[in-house]
């Protein structure tokens, strides 16, 4: 990618987000230079928040809370953005939680799920690298037995990260792969086993049942497994994110979220609404295609970047 030289991840995230929030902040500046924060301006503020995928309810709530606020130093673009960022950060604070590997589990089992194309395999690859770098032993199971060349894709990530990838060549039963992988991970004594799964749309009952089966099967080897079930979502996602989280949560008890592709112009603002509604931890954000482009989610940074600060 072209921007490999940007050193600090914060800058990179901000870089990604600033592209996305440019329109947002331009909008706010526009409306403030035009008039005071009257009801028309509030409507526009709400529209701007909706345009960042925060959703009608959350956007309305945030806009309303701003209208109640007193600005002793006068209303300015900066003040409004700051206040909004504070409000958003407050919502997101409680969901800021990096992935933690519990070494007592031997291995800690992390199941990765999500709809097609959300970035599951890439996320598994990046996580494997990061946990390997932090000194943990990691094994990865290629549970996407459906999509063509998904196993090969994960294998390449495994090679890059330097961890073993367990796959069942030609097999189509994801649960069997997961079971074998957990057996191997146990006997090899690794710290972390990550299970990649095939993309599935949440309204496909049969495919959700398949995911449930993976959990049933691995819990035979370790009743406490999986210890984390991470739902991977793409930042371009709109309001369907609600249905996604709800259905995956009901089906496989999702324990946390990862949001990918935040280096685009998509705002990923729906995460604010998701935090309000579900309160699920947000573990990490993907900000590029490089192996190091996955970072811990930080509420304040995310909120301030979203508001272009």
């Amino acid at each position: 990618m072209s921007e490999e030289n940007i050193s600090s991840w914060l800058e990179r995230l901000r870089g990604g987000l600033s592209k996305s929030s440019k329109k947002l902040t331009d909008g706010i500046t526009d409306l403030l230079t035009k008039r005071k924060l009257d009801s028309g301006a509030l409507d526009e503020l709400e529209d701007i928040l909706i345009a960042s995928d925060l959703g009608v309810a959350t956007a309305g709530k945030l806009a309303t809370s701003i209208s109640d606020r007193r600005f002793p130093d006068g209303i300015s673009d900066e003040a409004i953005r700051g206040a909004l960022a504070d409000d958003i950060a407050e919502i997101l604070n409680s969901v800021e939680a990096p992935l933690a590997v519990d070494l007592n589990h031997a291995p800690h089992v992390l199941l990765v799920c999500g709809v097609n194309g959300s970035g599951k395999t890439t996320t598994v690859g990046k996580l494997a690298k990061q946990f390997m770098d932090s000194g943990l032993s990691v094994m990865v199971a290629a549970g996407d037995t459906f999509r063509a060349a998904a196993v090969e894709q994960l294998q390449i990530w495994g090679d890059r990260a330097g961890c073993q990838v367990i796959s069942d060549s030609g097999g189509t039963d994801a649960a069997a792969v997961a079971y074998q992988a957990l057996e191997k991970a146990k006997s090899a004594g690794v710290d972390l086993l990550m299970i990649d799964t095939a993309g599935r749309l949440q309204n496909r009952k049969d495919l959700m049942a398949e995911l449930e089966k993976i959990i049933r099967v691995i819990s035979k080897l370790d009743p406490s497994a999986p210890h984390d079930v991470v739902l991977v979502m793409d930042a371009t996602i709109g309001q369907n994110a609600h249905a996604q989280v709800k259905t995956f949560k009901d089906s496989v008890n999702v324990s946390g979220l990862v949001m990918t592709k935040l280096d685009g112009s998509a705002k990923g603002g729906v995460i604010v609404a998701l935090a309000e509604r579900f309160g699920l931890p947000v573990h990490a954000v993907g900000v590029g295609e490089g192996i190091d482009d996955l970072r811990a989610f930080e509420a304040k940074v995310f909120a301030r970047s979203l508001m272009g600060l």
């Binding site: 329109k23 345009a51 995928d53 194309g117 685009g264 112009s265 998509a266």
Partner: peptide, 15 residues
């Protein structure tokens, strides 16, 4: 383009 895309769809398509 994915049918699940949110508000960013306009930016993507326009660009």
């Amino acid at each position: 383009s994915d049918a699940m895309t949110g508000q960013d769809a306009v930016n993507v398509a326009r660009e």
